[in-house]
Structures are given as C-alpha cells and as structure tokens.
Write a protein that binds this DNA or RNA. Sequence first.
RNA 1: GGGGAUGUGGUGGAACUGGUAGACACGCUUGGCUUAGAACCAAGUGCCGCAAGGCGUGGGGGUUCGACUCCCUCCAUCCCUACCA
Length: 801
Amino acid sequence: MTSKYNPKLIEKEIQKKWDQEKKYESKIDNREKYYCLSMFPYPSGKLHMGHVRNYTIGDVISRYKRMKNFNVFQPMGWDAFGLPAENAAIANKVSPKEWTDKNIENMKAQLRSLGFSYDWSKELRTCDSKYYKWEQLIFKKFYDAGLVYRKKSLVNWDPVDETVLANEQVIDGKGWRSGAQIEIKEIDQWFIKITKYADELLNSLDDLDWPENVKLMQKNWIGKSKGAEIKYKIENSDDCLIAFSTRPDTIFGVSFLAIAPNHPIAIQLSNKNKEIKEFLNKCKEIKAAEADIAKAEKLGIDTNIKVIHPFTKEKIALWIGNFVLLEYGTGVVMGVPGHDLRDYEFAKKYELQINQVIDTGKKSLPIVEKGKLINSQKYDGMTSDEAIKEIINDLVEMNSGSELIQFRLRDWGVSRQRYWGCPIPVIYDEESPKVIEKEEMPIELPELAEGSLPKPLNQNKSFINLENNLQRETDTFDTFMDSSWYYARFTSADNDDDIFDQNTKYWLPVDLYIGGIEHAILHLLYSRFFHKALRDIGLLEGDEPFKRLLTQGMVLKDGAKMSKSKGNTVDPQSYIEKYGADTVRLYMMFTSPPEQSLEWSESSVEGASRFLKKIWNLVDGRKFEIYDIDNNFSKEELTLRRKSHATLKKVENDYEVRFSFNTAIAAIMELINSIPEDFKSENASDYQKFCLNETIIFTLKMLFPISPHISEYLWNNFKVEGSDIESSWPEFKATLIEAEEFELIIQVNGKVRGKINLNKNSTQDMAEQAALTVENVKNFIGPSEIKKTIYVKEKLINFVI
RNA sequence: GGGGAUGUGGUGGAACUGGUAGACACGCUUGGCUUAGAACCAAGUGCCGCAAGGCGUGGGGGUUCGACUCCCUCCAUCCCUACCA
C-alpha cells in the first residue's frame, strides 16, 4: 500500500535521527579529509534566498564527498559583529547583543530545518569574547611583527549626529538619519600592513584552483604597475613634489601637476587663501567612497605655485584636484592631457595647454595608446617602451627620479568608531599607545545599560578611564577582521586554551570555499593576507587558506540584489513550510547554475515538488529483491540500464568537476522519464524489475546530496541489505554505457538535411555512401558537384556544394 | 570613472572541446479522468509560412565547410570600488 508524500513528517523524522546519531560531528580519522566551508552569515534575523542557495551548494558537495568516502568537515557559525545590530538597537530599543542572540537562534533553527549536515559542535560567533580574545591576540602578534601602525585617515562625519558614517549611510552626500551635509574628516586610525604581502598575494594567485575572473579581480585590485617617480622642484623653494607615472614617455606633454585636496601643501595654502579654503571645503562634501570621487565632476583650483619640469626646465602650474587621492601613490599626479582621458577633460575645462608627444597615426587627442615619441627633444622617434627606459635612466642621472614599482593596494584601515565590534586591545599612556599583554585579554566589550542606545566607546567614560591616568583605545575592529580567520578557528572552536590545535593542522586548508561573488575581492584578499601573516608568526601552516573556490552569483528579484532597503526580498521560510526543505533545495539547485545570478521566479518551485512526488510514487511501496536472472537482457532493458549508468557518470562529473547541479538534476529527470511503463507494473518480468531496481538505487543515491530527507526515507523502506544511503556512491559500468550505434547528422552546406543511424565501426566511406542515399539530402545536393566533404567521426558529415 | 561578469523561446535554463540551437522544467493549448474543480495522465508548443521552405542565441561587422561558442565594435543589465556584509 502506498502513502502520500508528506515532507513535513519525514523531514522531521530524518533530522531527528541525524541528531541522535551525531552523524555530522567530524573527528580525525585515516580517510582523506575534505573541509567544505560556506561563508558564514551575518545574523540579520532570517535566512534569505542567497543563504539558502549558498548553503545548499555546500551541503550537496559535503554529502556527495561523504558518499565518496571522504572525512568531511562542514562547520557553521556567525559573523555577528556589525552595523545592522546597532541600527536595529536604535530602531527597536533592544541591545545589539540581545538582538543578535535572538537572530542567531532563529536562523539556526532555519538552517536545521533545511537539513544541512553541519558539525554544530564547532559552532562559533564572532561577538563572543571566547572568539575575539584570540583576535586581540592576533593583533598583538601582528603589532609585534611590525605589521601595525597608526596613521591619519578620512572618514564621513555627520556633524549633527556627531558620528562617523559608513559609506552606505551617506545618501547623496547627506547623513541617512540626520540629513545633514556630511564632511570628510581626518582622524587617527590603526592600519595593518597588507601591502607588505602585496607581491606574495599577487604571485600565489597562480597556484589557486579559483575561478579565473576572481583571480583577475584580485590581480587588478592589487594593481602592480611599473613606472617612475619623477621629482618636480617647487619654484622659489628647496622642496620637491614627487609624482608617480606609469607613462614617463609622456613627460614632455605634462602641462600641469595636481595634488590631492588633503595634501599638506593644499592644507597649508588654505590657511592663507580664502578661495582655496572654500575649494577644499567643497571637496569635503564628496563622500570618501572611490566610486563617488570618480563619478563626481572633476574640479580643480590653481595654486599659483609653479614647479619646474626636470627636462625642459619650464614652469608648470600646480593645481589642486578633487580627483587626486592622497592614499594612492604620492598624492601627486602629472597631468598629460594629450594622452590621458581624465587629464584631457580637466585641461579642456580649465583651458590648460594640450600637447601631443606620442604619435600612433591616430588624429584626435587624447591618444592613450603607446606609440612613437614626437616633440620630446632627443627622444623623438623612439617607441614608448624604449623612451620609458631612456627617460628613467636620464632621470636617475639627473637625480630627478627613478624607476618605481607601485601597487594600487593600500594598507588596511581596521579602526571603526562604533560600539558593536571587537575592542582594539590598546591602552594609551598620555598619547603613546601600548598593545596589552595576552594575560590581560580579552578586553571585553562593555554591556549596555538597560534601555540605552549603542554609542561609540569613546562616549563610555567608565570604559575609557583606567587607573594612573591610563586610557583605553575606544575604536573597535573592522568586521572584516573577524571574518578573516574564522575558517581556521572553526577547526579548534571548542578549544578555550589554544587558538589552534592538532585539528587545525589536520583540517586546513579549506578544500572548497563557497560564497557570494560580492566577496571576490575584500574578504577573500584579507583572509589570504591573514593566513600568510599567521603562517609567518608560526600559528598556521601552508600558504593559502582556500584551495578551491566556488563563487555563487547573486539572487536577484526584478533584476536587483534582494535587500531589505529595496523591499524586494523573498522569504524562504514560507516555501520551506509549504513544500518542505527537499523541494526548496531541489528548486535552488535546479533553477540556475551556481556561478550565475539567479533571477527569482515564483512558478517553478511547483515543478520541483512535482518531481519529488513522482519519485515518491515510483519508489514508495516497492521492496528491493534479488532476482535469479542471467545476462540475457532485452534491447529495451539494456537501454534503461545504459541510461542509468550513463546518468550516474554524468551526475558524478556534474557534482564534482563542473558544479553544475541543474544539469545533473535534468539528467536524473530524464532517466525517470525514460522508464518504460510496463517495467513499473506488477506483471513486470524479473529482468525488468532488476533494471528498475537498479534505476531506483542510482536515483536515490544521486538525489541524496540534493534532497536528502526523501532519499534517505525511501531508501530505508526500500532496504538494500545492510546499507546506509550515505555510506557509498555506486560505480557505473563503462562497458554498459557504450552503444553499438550512433546517429549521423547529415549536412549540406552546414545545414542539417538528414539523420541516419549507423554502426559504430562504420568508416568515413560507408558513412558518406549511406548519407548520399537519404532522399532529402539528394534533393538538396541536386545536380551540383560536391566540392568538399567534412566528416566528424561518429557525429556529422557535411557536403559542401 | 575603474575592475569583473552576464545577455539564448512567453519564463528559468541546456548545448562541457567550433559540429543537430532550445535538453530538463515552468507556463500555455487540446484531450482523458471528474457532477465540477484540484491532483494526475496523454499529446502539442521558437518565430514566419497552407506547404515546400525560410528566419532565429542583445545590435552591427568579421573569420570558418560550419559560430550561442573565436575576433572587432556598439548597447543593456548585474556585482565590486577599500566604513553594508
């Protein structure tokens, strides 16, 4: 007697069983290890579709790898510090801690209901001092290793709320809450020398099994470029300005120099000159984000200072430009309007001279490509590359410059003027800072008084002031610090005495890391840096944290990233409740390949559910039996067996090599559709039943990683003696997959005009002759002469007439 | 502005190495079952055309016997742009 598919019931039952058996707690053993990690979530309250997608991918691979007899470690935790908790606290009058704890509880229940095979015994949360005390220790070790320093840096300042705002909190130049015009302010902040590792971060990209586009993004972000630093003497002064340029061959085309608005010279001038002061104030209205600076109208002001061109000795105007970044290079750019688009527009606007010094044959300026030098004195006629070498040589000789390798990558500012983060473990004696000793860690984040709103720590007197006039640092860490080493801490998360232990050694590196493409640069680069720095300190081994990377695309709705602020979110919970976890997981995997963005569509969830019902109806009520049969299968039976084994082969490749779950599912659907009706009937022969059973066994095994509850439940009732569905992956028989015939596609002038079945050992001659007997092919060739015949073995023949 | 992707039926997508474009689904149409509906089952479904056939993978151009796939160019959308995570 068959029953109805009831996901709610069976999913609970199966999950309970997994829990009781502690099935997914991992221990060191002698199998090959596989550390499968999905990016941990920010506990925003509810899982969103992006999470469901991310974690389903991770779970599918983890379960598949377990079936392939790997010792799999799949942990989960919480990236629990961050801005949203503070915002929620202000909006709902709950403390960030309470809000976060509650969210974690909710989301954990959701993750459990989705049937993910996590090792919860290693759960961690970054807002827990058991976690961040080690982060404070890492900071100390970095400090001792000379990787930490203090520097002035820019922040968005809201003058009404008197707080520092994140870039996303500045909307059209105004504070999101107060509506006040923001100001750029310069304050002292802690920096970590990621640039010390710039070369290694660049070079070891080659060894990573990562998507090429991510490697390319990181490469461009690090931005190693070769060029020259060129000294320009300031007229009537002993001082020099040093500009960096990747194109010293254009030096005879320089018509101005521009410095950043926060360059010391600019600030100095603003004290004497009202116009400059006004200009600098105007520059302060553009928020600190690179995109905003780049998109803003290019503005400048002439300082009336002149600098001396090192070759021509001509006087060149010195400008202040709002597009110049002090953080990048020296904060001085040389303007060559003839050969740079941005400089060209700037020169047009302010009517500056535009000189052509490179010739490529192209008529209109600017010419940004390399070419032959003109109007460049003795360098005329040289190619750009020759001239670059010569000019740098001559600059060195004149003591006016040198070759310089420059990185776009900047040091990492880790200070945040916020409450809900890891306190930076520093104490000030007067002005001089000292990182505290390990024994005094953790510096715990002070709890908020009942009902009070989160405020930056510098407003918390009892936190700041210590005995003997000592004062605490009040900045907290950038939350990217928290997420830069959690992958390693997972392995030892239950160890309170040591940051890492023998488990760390066993499980690292992460074999597969899965997360959103939006983290392609920052998070992944910071983590790579952390790993290398921790290696050099002696805390970790190996050069890279993540061996292989899978970046999933965004989940979009109406063409935009799902986000609360856009109000276009779709809550997975209602779908889990209505259809069950297996359907949601199946839908997520079926609807588009993981690396592509997924446009949410309501309607096809139903289809996923329908397919599971179909599987249920096929298997439920059936029992595995051993039949007394020989090898005399009929053609139809062999066709099903071939399909079963071929599907298994394809699915294996799709899961493991291509991460192409949608095509794997499609193949399983095809297999199910191809089962002949009479094989399923009670009157089926033993041969037919044998073939059907084989198909069922393969299908349940193949489906298990994606929809584990229904697969395991049906498997247990179907019962193949002494076996657990997760214990092994079946093996396909290559000899069964081979067919005797193939379909030959017949083309005339590249267009399909016929198809015939041929034996696999047919020669080209035989194929050609057979093809020419096809009526439609004959019609298309007609009386014309066949000029050429292209034959692709066992695939296609093309007659060119 | 810079960097990285993507673009294929009414919809999500498939075509893995330059070799049958549209697998597998969703939706829709027709039929069966049903008093009716839901569910399920069967058939059909890129566009134009009575048909033969022609057209067709964002637009334009190119290479090739053959292009969704390679090259050039333009357009649109998405992600990142160092303080959202």
